[in-house]
Amino acid sequence: MKGFYKRLQIYLFIILLFSISLFLLLSNDRTKLDNNPFSSAILELAAPVQNLTAKTFNFFRSIVDNYLLLINIRKENLLLKKRLKELTYENQRLKEMKYTNIRLKKMLDFKQSISFPLLPANVIGMDSSPLGNSIFINKGTAQGVKVGMGVVAPEGVVGYVIRTSRNFSSVIFLTDRSSGVNGLVQRSRAKGVVKGTIAGNYCEVKYLLKEVDVRKGDLMVTSGIGGKFPKGVVIGRVDKIENRPDTLFKMALLTPAVDFYKLEEVFVVLSSMRPDNNTKR
């Protein structure tokens, strides 16, 4: 009898946890971009630690890069070493300043070239699963970020905001299976819809009419339709074109312009509209 109750408890436990997870999965299939208070609270709690950890590790990494590698030198050269350290540090600092300057200039040029108001943000973390495609940024509702807003980098389109808390947000990549943006071929102005795939590292251009002129190497830019992204932001380069005889459209594979795994700073397109509720995720 005791064994029966024990087994019953186990089965009830399994059924309960299965039911909760299935309920969450089915009730939250993201047919619309939701932003419930619970997920905001979790994001708000964890993101400051992520922010702090990222800063601390960057700090220690710069120390390791700049100083610790120079420790192993002979004693009689201490003076020279000290001078070398100073110069190396100065050199590194100037180099870093130079690169920061180049990067910021690039960002400023990009910001000035876009008529939409842009909010700069730092990337503080990545998706919890290697199969997922999202990042966390250090700007949230307090700075005017809303769910559905587009996110861009100087190189091109990054994705859009899927979750926000007061000071942090989660951004899904353009290459995610649930992302999509209206684009056009820069050279021929042919229109198509750029969709992410489950592969997560390239996109597909759908609904390209068969007669339109698209070639390998063509640059795709945003069309501005939908209001999420300004017109003319680079999406990526056409890599391959598929012309299937049994369909009305041709399809192209696109390599995104942005390397999502090397992003440090991004811009949130502040005036982008909230997406429709039927945005399929």
Partner: peptide
């Protein structure tokens, strides 16, 4: 069992997958 479920649930909040996927 509860630890694994909770771990998945927390992971759901930091992922692009639908809520409940990692819990399950």
């Amino acid at each position: 069992g509860f630890n694994c479920f909770s771990l998945g649930l927390v992971q759901d909040f930091f992922s692009s997958f639908p809520l409940g996927f990692f819990a399950l």
